[in-house]
Structure formats: structure tokens, C-alpha cells
Amino acid sequence: MNNESALLSVRHAVYDYRTKAETVHALRDVSLDFHAGMMYAVVGRSGSGKSTLLSMIAGFDRLKAGEILVNGENLSKMDPETYRRKHVGMVFQAYHLIPQLTVSENIRLAMEIAGYVCNDVHSYVNTLLEKVGLDASYAKKRVTRLSGGEQQRVAVARAVSTHADILLADEPTGNLDDENAEMIVDLLYRMAHEDGKCVIMVTHSLELAQKCDQIYRLAGGKNVAEV
């Protein structure tokens, strides 16, 4: 695999959680490459360090050792918030939408934070909703009134609203039924292939993982053979 052309490349990443009682070595030595326009699945047992890896890629904390290169630039040298605003969109198992806001307000908040300017916000939000398979009537609905599948689609719309090139999804289908899960994965796949985003999805389901361009497996904080 050509490291130079990788949008994101993780090299010998080491990270541990220190609590008073113990030190958990969440990442021992992970080296992976991610390219734009591709969708990756990260699989592995629970506790194998998948979420931690995504957190590191999202810039929530610094690695204890190793490095993450974004377009060849070391992440630890960048301001993590600026990086996240510019490059990263995130989708979570629990959606993490702000409950008292409407669909459109949730999306606009993300845009506002990212400093993404847009002349016609309304039609932009409607386009985004259309893209994730929701019609314009959803814009004014409160997110708590939506079903899980719909909420997750709003979360995807929010993640892509700022034109981030890296889309991180931590078990986005965990709370969804099969039908909705498949729909979300298809959606993410389209984001990778139609919009050229680098989509990294953590999942338990091998079936869903099979839909991705590439599957990485983590075990005990290390990446094992690529499937």
C-alpha cells in the first residue's frame, strides 16, 4: 500500500488509559492506512481498542507513542479542534444529537461551529436531508420525535454538513434494526464513493463489514492480518 497517497496513516500507535487502579493498554501497536474515497471497516472483539483508535484519529487525545499523519502532516502538531472542525465528521452508536433542537438546528449548529458558511442554509440543509433519504419536512422536527434510523441519518447528515473529508462512525448501526443498519451502511458507502470521503466504520457485524472496501481487524490493541 502506498503510504504517500494515504489521506490518513496511523503508524505504531500506542495509547493507554491510566486510572488510579490500573493502566489499560488500549492501543499497543497499530499501523493502518486510510485513503480518500474508500470505506473501511474496523472489526474486533469488544475491548480490542477500536473506539480508542477512532478517538485518536478524531484528535481527542495524543498518542503515547507513534504518529498519525493526515495528508502527510503529523496530527500531534496540529490544533486538535481546528483539525476536527475542518476534517472530521463523526457518527456514534447513540447518535448524540442535541435533543431539544430540531433536525435543521442540529445540522446548523455543527456548521456554525465548523465555521462553514453557506448562502442559502435552508436549501443546503434540505439537500443534505435528501442525501440521507429524509424529505424536507423533517427539517423542522425535533430529533427526539424521530425513530432511531432517522436520527442516525440526521447524524450522518450533520457529519457531512461541514464537508469534512474523514468520516468516523463508531458502531453506527449498534442501535438499529437490520433494515436501518443496512441503509446507514449504504449511505456511508455512498459518501465514500460518491463524495470521495474517507469513511472509517467500527462494527461488530461481519455482514456489514463485508460491504466495505477494506476490513481491518484489531485484537488486544494491535492490528492483525487485513481481511
Partner: peptide, 13 residues
């Protein structure tokens, strides 16, 4: 607190 955390996830200063 959840709302604040989401804001922080979205890289809100």
C-alpha cells in the same frame, strides 16, 4: 453535560 460533551465533540471551543 451530554449536550456540552456533544458541543465539544463537534469541536466547539
Amino acid at each position: 453535560a451530554r449536550e456540552i460533551a456533544v458541543l465539544r465533540l463537534l469541536a466547539c471551543p
